[in-house]
Write a protein that binds this DNA or RNA. Structure first.
Lengths: 354, 354
DNA sequence: ACCCTGTGTGACAACGTTGTCAGCAGGCCT
DNA sequence: AGGCCTGCTGACAACGTTGTCACACAGGGT
């Protein structure tokens, strides 16, 4: 006595099926049947049970359900960073599909740290998620073996799993997209095209560089290492690299940027380097420097930036559907899906060489 | 016999504490102690247990743990849309704090649907999350009562809970921010300032309009309903509204946009309406129409758009920390935290009236 | 001899649900 | 009558963990 914040009820805590059963004057199991909409319950009985449920405010405890049945109706999603528009679009698509399949979604951002990726994945597994969608930060997925053995399914998105890991993957056509970007500039008359990409430790960055090189080779143009800069996103470094590139004896007349963040950072760097205000749209862009960005970004249309668009929504949807296919018994060998890219000309990529 | 995809082991499925105990030659409870790092286990025994754990690839089943102990070490986050940069920044901050507290995060997007908000929240509750952070779509949170009674804590973010719901909330200084935006334009000499906002069913939209009106009143300017358009985001409607506004006998010389999406959509509409290419940065913007946007967005700096910036990261952090405070026993009355806004002049808001 | 304390360990019940099986009517067939 | 369905309901064990309590043993004081 004294501090009793209890409700008007004599019981404490959440009502269980047992409480409902007692209130409805039926057996526990009958309540279970009603809650799970199992057939074979008399309509009048079911009605009484429903009344008791409403009266007590009963809600099923999914932990117990999970423990007993083994299915959690939830999946885990590990991406690089929720705040990156590319991944948040992917995230939304996954969420959509998961919800349609009656599943809930755990999310976590690895921040490009393999260790954090591993921790998140294992934490999801400890929660017994039914499946995983992973944008891997690391290259080694041996830690998933026990989980696979236990029947957890995983689909990799945006980047393939590490060597030796047989799992589904949904990738973007990185090589083709980058080749298209560079080829587009070549077709516009450019001969010296710089490539500004993410760290070569990242799969997509390497692939896109491959595509860039392929386009140069197909056009019979030399591959000049001095025109390539790669590394983790860092506005200062990027600005320095750009300044160096533009000050060279034989500067590039066009740029290809390796992802959305790099495109925006590049524009910022150009604005900072430019003596005159940056003018966009149909206007010549910084003295005629052409630009094609890999990956579309929100107001790229306003800025008149030509891009090779990925489709993160489609990637997320594909990955999620692949996963749910697996969860409903699809047992074939590991699959690899490729999401195409699309060139969207908006002006910046159509400027002729200066 | 026949189809036995089993591993080299005779057992099926995931090893349990019992299996580990058998392998290590100790009792189940000892394994539990080791796994949970409870004190009072002999170092040599613990070593044997660890060896058995590694050997079998054992991982604790959190569903059972949850069932027994009642704590899930997970929280639920319901936002409006992950793909909206404002909410994804908020999301990231929440994730960060959750991880620091050793909690995992369920996320879901309500898409501005009260029903979906409710479903997500209740699904999270069925999973027995320890707490919730909710950006409410609906106005009625009576459905949370049974959950509160059961000890689940909730913090509302960006928008307050419905009437009668005593819960913590973290809000942005909507009124103050909007007042600042309009006052800034007034100080620049503008007398006819249009307000383009989200649907008045949304709390933040109403509050921001209030701030706008307050600034007008403080400046002794009339409030002209003809200069206000509100409604759910729809580029076509916005363009039509803008066309109407600009074609009026006494058109506005400045705009205030009610959130990031509206700012970008407005720019798009202006670009579409403009005969000349849009020029940004320090250039006069579409014939001198000034603009201040509520809410910062990614390349607003590049576009030279003056904004009143919110701080979604801080909002998420504050909400999450408030929640974890509650989870660790803070029992005071419901709190309301306000996150300040900040005017960032970038050119578009400093243009004088045409 | 006694009790006491501390250290390490284990047996057992409990958490709230679902799967299995058994039971009890009532009806319809042989 | 006896047998056998079909429709509905309930008793009970099990899922894998943690909390509670008890026990065995060693050491140190009386």
């Amino acid at each position: 006595m004294g501090d009793d914040p209890g409700v008007g009820d004599t019981r404490r805590g959440r009502p269980t099926m047992n409480d409902v059963a007692a209130a409805a004057g039926v057996a526990l199991k009958t309540v279970s049947r009603v809650v799970n909409q199992e057939p074979g319950v008399n309509a009048a009985t079911a009605e009484r049970v429903h009344a008791a449920i409403d009266l007590l405010g009963y809600r099923r405890n999914d932990s117990a359900r999970t423990l007993r049945s083994g299915r959690t109706a939830s999946i885990g999603l590990v991406i690089e960073d929720v705040a990156d528009p590319f991944y948040s679009s992917l995230s939304r698509a996954v969420e959509e599909v998961a919800l349609r399949h009656g599943h809930l979604l755990f999310t976590g951002s690895s921040r490009e740290s393999p260790e954090r990726e591993r921790e998140l994945v294992l934490a999801f597994c400890a929660r017994r998620v039914d499946g995983l969608i992973i944008v891997p930060a690391g290259q080694d997925h041996g830690y998933l073996e026990p989980e696979f053995a236990d029947g957890i399914r995983a689909v990799f998105a945006d980047r393939p799993p590490g060597a030796g890991c047989e799992a589904d993957a949904v990738l973007c056509d990185n090589v083709g997209g980058a080749r298209t970007a560079t080829a587009h500039l070549v077709a516009g008359g450019h001969r010296r095209i710089a490539f500004l990409g993410d760290s070569p430790t990242i799969f997509t960055a390497r692939e896109r560089l491959r595509g860039h090189r392929a386009a140069l080779a197909e056009a019979g143009l030399p591959y000049d290492e001095g025109l390539v800069t790669m590394g983790p996103p860092d506005p200062d470094r990027l600005r320095a690299d750009l300044a160096r590139l533009l000050a060279a004896a034989d500067p590039p007349t066009a740029l290809v940027t390796g992802n959305g963040r790099f495109t925006v950072d590049t524009l910022r760097a150009l604005a900072a380097l430019s003596p005159a205000p940056v003018r966009l749209g149909a206007e010549p862009y910084l003295g005629g420097l052409a630009l094609v960005g890999f990956d579309d970004f929100e107001p790229a249309d306003l800025l008149g930036i030509t891009v090779v668009a990925q489709d993160p929504g489609r990637m997320g949807r594909t990955a999620a559907e692949l996963l749910f296919g697996r969860l409903s018994g699809d047992e074939g060998p590991a699959r690899r899906a490729e999401v195409p890219t699309r060139l969207i000309p908006r002006g910046s990529g159509e400027l002729p060489p200066a």
